[in-house]
Amino acid sequence: MKFSEDVIRPGRPWLDTSGNRIQAHGGSVIAVDGVFYWYGENKEFTVNGGSIWHWGVRCYSSTDLHNWEDRGLIIPPVEDDADSPLHPSQYLDRPHIIYNEQTKKFVCWVKVMTKGSVQRSTVLVADSILGPYEIVRTWLRPLSMNAGDFDLVVDPHDGKAYCYFERVHSEMIVADLTDDYTDVTGYYSTHFPQPQPPFVREAPSHFRRGGKHYLITSGTTGYYPNPSEVAVAPSYHGPYSILGDPHPSDESHTSFHAQISSVFKHPGKKDLYIALGDRWLPGYLDDSSRAVTEFTKHFAPGNDGDKPMDEFAMVDTAIADYVWLPLRFEGEKAFIDWRDEWSVDEFEDM
């Protein structure tokens, strides 16, 4: 039986066309030759207390953004080498893929966190969006920095590329990439300095609209959701002006219990920007009073960053849900409103 959807239902289990849970966490969407590809962390074998953090990068294809066909593992795990950044026990997160028009290569960066919370990057390339991908750099520390959550951006006019990454527990970095997109050039700018978590910004998601550059980030609270923050700038390197939480209607101040991983501009719609979010802890909704308590404790004035966070007994990212919502704009301000369901077809074509 083939499963079919005509709407997107944020926060509800999302099944592929074969009826299986979609495993594309911390994911992004890229359009290639009129087809959408959604890729992300495959968590199907990740269980609380287990040794498997990921099972490679999985990809799905669609022509309508509603129905997704499983295209398999485009970057499979390396099972026989515990020292490989692709080994299932390595903390591999947030793959991002961009296309290099000059080299005709798809370039994928992944973040890998090792013992001691050292976070580095591995870079892979392929001739096709679906792979096979070949590792070209391992254990890269961009600018000799401990690099956490990130986003990759290509300028649509000159093909120049940038990496936005969290300098772990410190600030946001915008770094120019080399012409082949596999390394940084050395030129960079710094943004949003903070003394410690939970105030440090992570999970950067960049998009352009009307000549402005937007960046949506989250605070640093582990798997607990927190209020997003949107900022706007005249260029990739800023300066960025903070506009505040784009979820003003969310009384829980948790970005609708989700963390945004990327923002996708629909190429066939006039003004459709979609915030792709992960609801890492679906059980968070089952105890709203505790949720508010945890949030308040860690974002309270005077927090020195050393207060421990309670964790749920079960953190089962294999059943994490997705919260995809369209952005709404008032002038240069960007907002994200809750919708129980919505359709791409509601938006005007180009």
Rank of each mutant, 00 (worst) to 15 (best):
E251F: 07
P225W: 00
Q259T: 09
T220M: 09
Y224M: 06
E251K: 14
V232H: 11
G210I: 10
A231R: 04
T190L: 08
S252P: 02
A231K: 01
P246M: 09
G244Q: 05
V232W: 12
Y240L: 05
S235H: 11
V232C: 09
G238R: 06
F264T: 14
S218D: 08
F192C: 08
S218G: 07
R208S: 11
S261C: 08
V230Q: 01
R201T: 00
N226M: 00
Y214E: 06
P198L: 03
H257V: 04
P225D: 02
R209F: 10
D271I: 05
S252G: 03
I242C: 01
S189H: 03
A203F: 09
G222I: 07
G211S: 11
P246A: 05
Y188R: 10
R209N: 10
V263G: 09
P239T: 03
P225Y: 00
F199E: 02
S249G: 14
G238Q: 07
R209D: 12
S249E: 12
P246W: 03
S262Y: 07
E229R: 02
E229K: 04
S241A: 14
H206K: 02
A258T: 14
L215V: 04
Y188H: 14
T254D: 15
H266M: 12
H253L: 13
P267M: 10
H266S: 11
I242A: 07
E229H: 01
L272D: 04
F207M: 00
R201D: 00
H253K: 10
Q196W: 13
A233Y: 07
Y188Q: 00
E229S: 06
Y224A: 01
T254N: 14
V263E: 13
S252F: 05
S189Y: 02
Y240F: 15
G244V: 15
S235E: 11
F199V: 00
S261G: 12
F207H: 01
G244C: 11
G186K: 09
A231F: 02
H206Q: 12
G210P: 09
H191F: 14
L272R: 02
F192L: 15
D250V: 07
A258K: 07
S241C: 08
S205F: 04
A203W: 12
N226H: 01
Q259A: 02
G211H: 01
S218Y: 08
